[in-house]
Amino acid sequence: MRAAVAVALAMGLAFGANARGPEGQTWDFTLPTLDGDRFLSLGRIRGPVLVNFWGRDCPPCIAELPRLQAFALQHPEWTVLLVSTDVPAVARRALSDRGIALPAVRAGANVAGLMRAAGNVSGGLPYSVAVNGAVICRAMAGELSAEDLGQWARACSPGDARGGR
């Protein structure tokens, strides 16, 4: 019971009194690329962004990587950004072995806090967030299906009042 109350309080503090979720909240971060040669800032990326938290030991994370890459190719107005929970060398190898060429960053010790700020209070993987104009339009724990991605593309398009400008 105490755990449920703690989660409810955390949700309320994170999302306001309505505790409905992160949609409509602003969210931004700056993280180093896996190579460590530069930093990517979410707020500086133009257009809608799908941020996906993943790890190499997470079967649904690995299963959805090719789907995310296909989505990026089919929707060039979107940026798909992978946030690895693994050390950079392991993440680079996992992506390379699967032919994934999406931009990837490392969250390091900040990963739990970064996910919590976007609505993932449990810390489970995979976790995906769609952002447009620094505003969260969708967030979901679990593997994204092709149908989910299509719904997100429509809901968070640049002209949509919920996610666009």
Rank of each mutant, 00 (worst) to 15 (best):
Arg93Phe: 01
Arg38Lys: 15
Arg154Tyr: 06
Cys61Ser: 14
Ser122Glu: 08
Ala17Arg: 14
Gly36Tyr: 14
Gly47Ala: 14
Asn110Tyr: 07
Leu40Val: 09
Ser84Ala: 14
Arg38Asn: 08
Leu102Met: 03
Leu68Val: 04
Glu23Asp: 13
Gly47Met: 09
Gly16Tyr: 15
Phe39Cys: 09
Gly150Pro: 03
Pro32Arg: 00
Ser145Gly: 03
Leu34Gln: 12
Ala10Leu: 06
Arg20His: 15
Asp160Cys: 11
Leu114Trp: 00
Arg154Trp: 11
Asp86Met: 03
Phe29Asp: 03
Gly24Ser: 07
Pro66Gln: 05
Asp28Gln: 13
Thr26Phe: 11
Ala134Pro: 14
Cys58His: 11
Gly164Val: 05
Gly164Ser: 08
Thr30Trp: 05
Ala8Lys: 15
Arg20Gln: 10
Ile136Asp: 03
Arg93Thr: 00
Gly150Ala: 11
Arg98Val: 02
Ala4Glu: 12
Ala117Gln: 10
Ser128Val: 06
Ala101Arg: 15
Ala139Lys: 07
Leu81Ala: 12
Pro126Glu: 01
Ile45Tyr: 15
Ala161Asp: 12
Ile62Gln: 02
Val83Asp: 00
Val80Phe: 05
Ser96Arg: 11
Cys156Arg: 06
Arg2Glu: 14
Arg106Leu: 05
Arg44Glu: 15
Cys137Ala: 08
Pro32Tyr: 06
Arg165Glu: 11
Ala153Ile: 13
Pro48Phe: 07
Ile45Ala: 08
Asp97Tyr: 02
Leu81Glu: 03
Val129Asp: 00
Gly113Val: 01
Val51Glu: 04
Gly47Asn: 12
Gln74Cys: 09
Ser122Val: 03
Phe53Asp: 02
Asp86Leu: 04
Thr79Ile: 05
Leu40Pro: 11
Gly21Pro: 12
Gly150Asn: 00
Ala139Asp: 10
Gly119Thr: 15
Arg154Val: 10
Asp57Cys: 04
Phe29Glu: 03
Arg162Ala: 06
Ala155Met: 13
Pro59Ile: 00
Val87Lys: 00
Thr79Cys: 13
Leu9Lys: 08
Val131Leu: 14
Arg92Cys: 03
Leu114Ser: 15
Ala117Thr: 05
Glu23Gln: 13
Ser145Glu: 02
Leu149Asp: 05
Met1Gly: 12
Val51Ser: 08
Pro22Gly: 13
Leu73Glu: 12
Phe29Ile: 09
Asp35Trp: 06
